[in-house]
């Protein structure tokens, strides 16, 4: 099983065994629609993504829990 870890937008994204997603050590719940192979999460409720990593990066970038935008 693949294990992926990267730093994106100052967040640590970790995907264990292609399924378990953690951002900054926090486990992220998500849904995978196997019929159309799309991922979605309550963190970004208006979009489906083509891969788990793409969704993880979007969560890191856009949710106020993880993004680091400063005035």
């Amino acid at each position: 099983m693949a294990h992926h870890k990267e730093i994106f937008e100052d967040c640590e994204i970790e995907i264990k065994e292609d399924t378990n997603l953690l951002i900054n050590g926090k486990e992220i719940d998500y849904e995978h629609d196997r019929d159309i192979n799309k991922w979605s999460s309550r963190y970004l409720p208006y979009t489906r993504y083509d891969s788990l990593l793409e969704m993880a990066r979007a969560i890191a970038q856009h949710t106020v829990e993880f993004s680091n935008a400063k005035e």
């Binding site: 309550r42 963190y43 970004l44 409720p45 208006y46 979009t47 979007a58 856009h62 106020v64």
Partner: peptide, 10 residues
């Protein structure tokens, strides 16, 4: 719109 309109805190 993007940005703050993307998450559940939209």
């Amino acid at each position: 719109v993007g940005g703050s309109m993307l998450p559940m805190t939209s």
